[in-house]
């Protein structure tokens, strides 16, 4: 399924995982080509959820299905997902082009087609002219653009954003969300994003999963959940009830 246009359905079936004292239990289904935002208090298991999908954590029971295929036992590199972290997405000693190129070949053996794809991705995230720059000379937003460009050249049907824009200012964050939205419209990949800002979900008009104590406490359309009639737990988290 790697390389195919479009998104893939992401399903967590009866996933059980414990992290120290914390026991988690996830059941989740994100249909193909959807955008889903994951919110919740810190320590509720948001990042763990993404780590389970990406393969950085191994569940104690249950299955991870991507595009209907069981990937529970696959190592991270073989899963059809790309993940963007909050920081440390780039190798500081490699320039922008090489950092993106790693998405095509982990040995940096790039063909002409690879180079074309990299140049295209750089253009699409708006970094043309900065191919030879090192990460230390880029702004925080530009670095995340490089990470997204790498996700583009990897061309996997699922994109995971782990608080990828948390360290950016409000205006920049909205810019980055718009970029993701535009790329989503283009590639139709499935996007799961962990965020601290519920308004991100509204901005993206996405699905919303609200996590509490290692469980999905509420899910549905962001617009419905975040409205007056939304569930109590979510309102408590938002601080909108007395």
């Amino acid at each position: 399924m790697t390389g195919k246009k479009g998104g893939a359905e992401v399903t967590l079936e009866e996933i059980r995982f414990s992290y120290g004292e914390m026991r988690m239990h996830f059941d989740l289904d994100v249909p193909a080509s959807q955008i889903a935002a994951i919110i919740g208090p810190s320590g509720s298991g948001k990042s763990t959820l993404l780590n389970l999908i990406a393969g950085f954590e191994m569940p104690q029971a249950g299955k991870v299905l991507i595009g209907g295929v069981d990937v529970t036992r696959l190592p991270p590199a073989e899963r059809p997902v790309s993940m963007v972290f909050q920081e440390n997405n780039l190798f500081a000693h490699l320039d922008v082009e090489a950092n993106i190129g790693l998405g095509r070949s982990p040995k940096l053996k790039l063909t002409a087609a690879d180079r074309a794809a990299i140049a295209d991705a750089i253009a699409r995230v708006g970094l043309t002219g900065k191919e030879k720059r090192k990460p230390e000379t880029l702004s925080g937003g530009e670095r995340q653009r490089v990470a997204i460009a790498r996700a583009l050249v990897r061309n996997r049907p699922v994109l995971l954003l782990d608080e990828a824009f948390a360290s950016l200012g409000p205006a920049l964050r909205v810019q980055m969300l718009d970029l993701v939205k535009a790329l989503h419209a283009e590639t139709a990949m499935t996007v799961l994003m962990v965020t601290h800002h519920p308004e991100d979900a509204l901005h993206m008009d996405s699905l919303l999963f609200f996590l509490e104590n290692g469980m999905i406490a509420a899910s549905g359309n962001a617009k419905d959940l975040l409205s007056e009639t939304g569930p109590e737990a979510l309102k408590r988290y938002m601080g909108t009830t007395a």
């Binding site: 393969g55 950085f56 991270p76 590199a77 500081a92 790693l102 982990p106």
Partner: peptide, 25 residues
């Protein structure tokens, strides 16, 4: 700590990792 996850995801390992990631640092 900084690179393990990234390398795992991109499938950079063994000598390639040593050459591209660890050695320069």
């Amino acid at each position: 700590a900084r690179h393990n996850r990234l390398c795992a995801q991109l499938g950079i390992s063994g000598w390639t990792r040593l050459r591209l990631v660890d050695w320069p640092v």
